[in-house]
């Protein structure tokens, strides 16, 4: 029995991406806050998940973006590199295209505003709501943060309660704390 060699497997996965045959490429990226499931369409990054169950993620991506979902290293390389640099403290801004095409208008507006919150700073949910032209929508902003498709790159960890408490985080409060500490926003 000749198993498919890792080189042959890699060659096919690279070729599939190179020939633009994929709806979504994904890979796993190791970081100090755990292994991330990272996925991208041709338009940009579409999903980052903590503690992912790959099978569930694949089904979700296939429903949202199309069936041709394949693990492929090359398309995820820019994100991997920038995440590495971020966790080494060498990068403060992500320079990555993002695919928010499937987000509702309000969510997209909030996520765009979120992307402008600088490294090492925090804003409150209410403040982010105001910046998104919906000053009374702090709670709705909280929901958008909770469902943020691209945590870390879209920095929902920089959004905190008006009393200064961290409040919540999709990936668990210990991670929110770790990210803010890395950025020097927490001592």
């Amino acid at each position: 029995m000749n198993p498919v060699s890792p080189e042959l497997d890699r060659r096919f996965r690279d070729a599939a991406a190179r020939e633009h045959l994929l709806d979504v490429a994904y890979d796993l990226v190791d970081t100090p806050v755990g292994t991330l499931f990272v996925a991208a369409t041709e338009r940009g990054l579409c999903r980052i998940a903590y503690d992912a169950e790959p099978e569930r993620e694949l089904d979700g991506l296939a429903r949202a973006f199309g069936l041709r979902v394949l693990r492929s290293i090359a398309p995820i390389d820019p994100a991997r590199r920038q995440l590495d640099e971020y966790f080494e403290g060498k990068r403060q801004r992500f320079d990555l295209a993002v695919d928010l095409a499937l987000q509702a208008d309000f969510n997209r507006r909030v996520l765009r505003e979120l992307a402008r919150v600088p490294y090492g700073e925090v804003v409150t949910y209410g403040e982010l709501a105001a910046r998104s032209a919906r000053p009374r929508a702090a709670r709705a902003v909280g929901t958008v943060m909770n469902r943020n498709p691209l945590p870390i790159v879209l920095p929902c960890h920089r959004v905190i309660g008006s009393n200064g408490k961290l409040v919540g985080y999709g990936g668990g409060l210990h991670r929110k704390e770790a990210l803010l500490r890395l950025e020097g926003a927490l001592l």
Binding site: N2, P3, V4, L8, D9, L22, E55, L58, D59, L61, A62, L67, R68, V69, L70, R71
Partner: peptide
């Protein structure tokens, strides 16, 4: 199924 699952299930026997 998503293509990854199809590939994963059949690649060894096809090879």
């Amino acid at each position: 199924p998503p293509f990854e699952r199809f590939y994963d299930e059949h690649r060894e026997e096809i090879y």
